[in-house]
Design a protein around this nucleic acid. Sequence first.
DNA 1: CCGTATTCTTTTGATATCGAAATAATGGAT
DNA 2: ATCCATTATTTCGATATCAAAAGAATACGG
Lengths: 386, 386
Amino acid sequence: MISDSLPAQMVEAMRLQQPLSRVELSRQLAIAPSTAGIHVDRLLEQGFLRVASAPVSSPGRPPVVLELNPEAGQFIGIDLDSRSIRGVSVDFAQRLLRDRTLPLKRTANANEVIEQIASTIEDVRDQSRPLLAIGLGVPGIFDADRGVALHYAHIRGWTDLPLAERFANQFDVPVHLENNIRAMALAERWFGQGRDSQNYICVGVRSGIGAGVFVNGELFRGTHGLAGEIGRWPIPQSGCTAVLEDVASISSLLQSATEAVVSGQKTSMQAVRQRVQWESFREAVQAGDKLACEILHAAARNLGTVLASLTLILDPEKILVAGPLQETGDRFLDPLRSTLVEHLPAVHARKPLVAYSELWDLVGAFGAAGVAVHAWQPTDETVTTH
Amino acid sequence: MISDSLPAQMVEAMRLQQPLSRVELSRQLAIAPSTAGIHVDRLLEQGFLRVASAPVSSPGRPPVVLELNPEAGQFIGIDLDSRSIRGVSVDFAQRLLRDRTLPLKRTANANEVIEQIASTIEDVRDQSRPLLAIGLGVPGIFDADRGVALHYAHIRGWTDLPLAERFANQFDVPVHLENNIRAMALAERWFGQGRDSQNYICVGVRSGIGAGVFVNGELFRGTHGLAGEIGRWPIPQSGCTAVLEDVASISSLLQSATEAVVSGQKTSMQAVRQRVQWESFREAVQAGDKLACEILHAAARNLGTVLASLTLILDPEKILVAGPLQETGDRFLDPLRSTLVEHLPAVHARKPLVAYSELWDLVGAFGAAGVAVHAWQPTDETVTTH
DNA sequence: CCGTATTCTTTTGATATCGAAATAATGGAT
DNA sequence: ATCCATTATTTCGATATCAAAAGAATACGG
């Protein structure tokens, strides 16, 4: 737990396992029921919690079941990468309110990108409830404490930008920065399948590959904030050493497909301007095209071997795969799972569950919102809804 | 922190960074100076702390420098593997009091082993100060909560043994169980180079290979207690897939050496009963024997690749290598380090420090003692020294 | 030698949390 | 209908911790 104020912890527990009664809350947080009662009363009064209908029937006094009040406010999350800006707003109970995706021109410079982020925030913002915090998932290196983006090669002028300050001034709420890949892991924690897991790994496969590692319920960043940067994981191959991104990223898949098409191999895939596009590859896979499936299998086996290693060192409960690959369904996941199992010794009686993230392409934006959600703390003021 | 009682946290902070003053303690633990004062007074009165000589000279009231009172008690740690029992006793300031190593007969059954553990404890016990707790580092699978060893294949009858209960009854102190490899990582935390690191990995290379992972200052066990079991890490080789233990453990080194000697290659190593012994291998390495050095290099490169992967996923501050290999000094460590660096992308400006554990062959026993040290909490009673 | 700045420690009153007991609200048994 | 067992919540006095201010002990500069 980063924030150790009790009300904050209570709201956090509600986020993970609502609905809960006062007593259940006190048990979850290992605090006295009387203490839980005090804070619940205050949170009810402030409007952050509300009582839910209680469909119970068991001996004893029935509990007053509590839930988050969706009206209490909203959070906004922005996922920035070199190609697009995606934004979501979620209500206080973390349900999606609005989302928007904005393609970025390759030529856009830092100032233009910042303006477009601001307009995306305005766009997804719901006027009917107060804005509580904003999370930004950014690429490249940055200083989370000061809220400054330090450098990213693929956007011109993206150097030493005080993003948090910039948007905090405009919208008058706290603004948090996080790595856009790690944000995906946070999305699972707050919106997806990580809610009931303390230890899991979220692997993002896009044009690059990265992972977010959750240990003991907390996102692990590492000594220099580089934990999970598995894109350069060495993959010994016949002859030279490749890295994971060369053999299992979306780019590498399309590269292999392109080479095969250009060299005239039999396939339903087509190259546009000497490049096979993702859509073409995906359709070929779904149609059972042999070449495309073989390429996909090879990637699955490579990634599976790495996941086996990760399982050995971290013994996770779950491994979640996020990215476009989920459109290929079990055609990717099955060989991935079987490779994983193959490489695990029998000791691992309980293999980690391997599944796709269910948050689709908004996973990064949800994660950025999750950063804001996690960092938020109730204040003394009462909620003012209009 | 597992134990959250404030006095326990204070003693723990002292263990990691003594000597400290009241104010420094309060800053370390982020508590009010007044609160620190209250508990320090009590711990002084109880005899767990004492004031140290204060060689200071700076403006302001000089601090009362505190240190652990070595006389306040002792902890005992036992390291059990299939070949030997090693025991240590340490004083309250974690300095070695006595140690003993007892070779185990291959034929010994569980009952005999238990008796020999008891006799080792008696042997290393220092009669002049109270025994506070015992830690047992055991191989195989076990239930830490109940203190029961469940199974280990290499000792006859080693099944469902309530070890904690057995020794707690005999010595009337708390007894803790831990995996003997993970205990090595704990040794570094409490006795060695992990004292000033929050995130590090301790890799034990003996007849097998295992790792202990420290994240955020705590030993990480994983979902099923299997974190760090990297012995079966897949190592793709020409043709088939090997595992780490096949290519970098002590056994594998000796196996390769034996094969080479038997096939008549030129070397100073000698096989006894068709087997090259560790001593022979080590001497050959130290003498610069070409074949032995090549075998060692190959192992270093294999392990180095794995360490690079570990660094990518965990971004540790340090990686510590424990085991007999330290007798080969830089002849092993140099190629290990260079392989590691080779495989890390430039992003990793700060490479993890790679070093040997300095606790030698008692590292496992120290670690077991560390388990006891970490779990111990001050009680209300005053220390009774005689 | 004497103030002054500085830092550590202790005192003090306010607040948060706890633990145990009292109270409340229900289903089921008599 | 009434009582009882059961579980949830609230009350209340005890304790732990905090924040701020007071007090103590030193170096240093005049």
